[in-house]
Write a protein that binds this DNA or RNA. Structure first.
Lengths: 135, 135, 135, 135
DNA sequence: GTGGTCTAGACCACT
DNA sequence: GTGGTCTAGACCACG
């Protein structure tokens, strides 16, 4: 995994952990890999991974059992809330930025359509079956 | 003006200075207020404002004349380039994030339309006369 | 039984085992339930219960006979010593904390009286017949 | 400063920072020493002190200004709330423990009085003028 | 100067 | 094995 050096790694890890859950690829209550193992996989220091887990725990997105490991929250509503928050935040930010640049609605739609054609849409592996190709 | 404490203030200032220019509300070559006055208005440390101006100068977006003050670049192409870069970056980031959340094209369009209805589209006051209402 | 996740579970178990003995509700020499049964009742890992028993044994508070189970020490003095130690520790800690918060003696007494009225005094069920109602 | 090795140092630091504020010896809004300096004084690693500060910030007890330092919250109510919480928690814990040990109200009062005579009451420097000597 | 993050490596308590 | 804490030392961005 590549990290944007401009933003804290632990934050990017948090998002990376949330993503598959929010996309429904990881079920509520499922066990996460251990901190050490994930640290190895993502090639970061275990302390950094520990921080990411601690923040996720504080947010109530995961919970940890001493000596046992960490688990995604079993609260489906919590996950739905997270998803909703992130979706809204993304859209709000986009509209905010678009507005600041003075783009009209028509221009915005046009822009998005053009970029789709450049195939920028799919950037993480999503099973083809789950994609809406928008035809 | 309010600043997001999570992001560098000088960056937010830079963006705030660029915005009206990119939207065409401030013409190329126009004079900017003095560093001290802007610092007072935005309630930031003059050092911070100095840094923002320095970065803008380094980027070629403004230029400073000793004794007379600072001016937006007169190079219309430079501004157009800036605008184009920002628009592309915003759209790319949006599509990236949407994809990470697993939203389909149809869902995305729906989402944007819903948020428009909530009047989130206009977040900064833009004179009606300057808006492109999308034919 | 509920455990404070911030403190070692085995310690909390040890305290739970000591309490009825110290209150005189369980006599010296009395038999304890088996490790497995107590683990089931308190819903903890048998390993954790084993550790609690081992520590109690090390402290001389209980002793274990292979095949027959575990028993509270028959040494009445040992129990009295335990009780005395705990009482002193509790009082010391309380006065220490009160002092750190800057409460005067009068304020402390007032506070305790107020909380009694809220019926916080009795937090574990103690048969009325065993309570000392204060002269 | 001495730390109880049984409890996280960063927690004990948090309490140590709160105490003078709660006792009214440090005013709301007052500047705190820098993380580095406090770390030196308390002889802990700056990272540990950083963690204590971060937690206090999350609790809303202090706030931090980039490059400037940290300050006690200016919200007098927040401090009063903190004080109230701590006082209640201390008293509750005490009554809980006392009850678990089976002490009656009369015995408790007697115990506290005896310990006062041993001069355990004052453990941190409190100006004589602020003490209630309980005569 | 300030706080924030990251790495490296260690030790501990718990299951 | 697990997570939690601590130290040491480094680098960076910010005001």
């Amino acid at each position: 995994m590549q990290f944007d050096p401009k933003r804290p790694i632990y934050l990017q890890i948090m998002e990376a952990i949330k993503r598959p859950v929010i996309r429904g690829e990881l079920k509520p209550g499922a066990a996460l890999k251990s901190i050490r193992e994930m640290a190895r996989e993502m090639q970061v220091n275990p302390n950094t991974m520990t921080r990411a887990f601690a923040e996720l725990e504080r947010e109530g997105f995961i919970h940890t059992q001493r000596g046992t490991g960490s688990f995604i929250t079993g609260d489906q509503q919590r996950i739905e809330q997270e998803r909703s928050q992130m979706v809204t935040a993304v859209a709000e930010q986009f509209l905010q930025q678009i507005s600041e640049l003075g783009l009209s609605r028509a221009q915005t739609i046009k822009l998005l359509n053009e970029m789709k054609k450049q195939d920028l849409y799919v950037v993480e592996s999503i099973p083809l079956s789950k994609r809406d190709t928008g035809t």
